[in-house]
């Protein structure tokens, strides 16, 4: 699903966020990306999501070369991804429900069908009572969960999450992790960047450990 070869990302000004890493995530695999902050975790996820372009090297996502993929082909790929960023980027001019419904509306799903799916996603994230609220009145952790609901409501083939449990208390964090595992069990490829090694240390998934842009280890758990 994701194949990187000597992947380099250098930002203008010379900062090298990724210094030539190579790895392969199989279709249906669940993988963690860990490392200290500034190690390049977020950059790696942004490259896979197509939010930024590689400077050098190869990055194939679902067989598409992210360095050369034409802009107009990116939406088709994005519709098969669920992306959870550190900042959930919710829209504060509409309800929680409408925020979560957005990806379904984009693919042209009709309201009747949307309603059921959005409620199911909100239910999984314990937000069912809050669907009519404006996300502004929610706590940071709740907003984070709305962002996760929005990422999973479309049942993506590839789920990318950058510190998805950053704002959550340990119990909730474990629940969210279980949710990601449930998705993985039905075939979704999952790539999660986290620095919370205690949360994942007992989980049976592979870890890509980044250190200052380089891949230090790639453990099979």
């Amino acid at each position: 699903m994701i194949r990187a070869e000597r992947l380099v990302k250098r930002y203008p000004g010379g900062h090298e966020a990724l210094a030539g890493i190579s790895f392969h995530v199989e279709r249906g695999e669940m993988t963690f990306v860990t490392g200290h902050s500034g190690a390049g975790k977020s950059t790696l996820l942004r490259l896979v999501a197509g939010l930024e372009r590689p400077t050098r090297g190869t990055l194939l996502v679902d067989g598409k070369n992210m360095a050369t993929l034409p802009r107009r082909q990116l939406p088709r790929l994005r519709r098969r991804m669920g992306i959870v960023l550190q900042d959930p980027h919710l829209l504060y001019d509409r309800s929680v429900f409408d925020n979560v419904a957005l990806p379904l509306a984009i693919v042209g799903m009709r309201p009747r069908e949307i309603a059921g799916r959005v409620r199911a996603a909100l239910d999984k994230l314990g937000l069912l009572g809050k669907e009519h609220l404006n996300p502004r009145v929610l706590s940071g952790g709740e907003q984070q969960r709305v962002g996760i609901a929005r990422a999973v409501v479309g049942k993506p083939d590839l789920l990318l999450a950058d510190e998805p449990t950053g704002n959550l208390d340990p119990d909730l964090a474990r629940e969210i992790m279980d949710l990601f595992r449930a998705f993985n069990e039905v075939g979704t490829t999952v790539l999660i960047a986290t620095h919370d090694i205690y949360l994942i240390e007992h989980l049976p998934y592979r870890r890509l450990v980044l250190e200052r842009g380089a891949l230090r280890r790639s453990d099979a758990a």
């Binding site: 999501a49 939010l51 802009r71 107009r72 939406p75 088709r76 994005r78 519709r79 098969r80 991804m81 992306i83 960023l85 980027h89 919710l90 829209l91 001019d93 957005l102 990806p103 984009i106 693919v107 929005r150």
Partner: peptide, 15 residues
């Protein structure tokens, strides 16, 4: 903001 998020979620430029 809506345009940015929509694009993140797979909206094409035409959308």
């Amino acid at each position: 903001p809506e345009l940015r998020v929509s694009r993140l979620l797979g909206a094409s430029d035409a959308d």
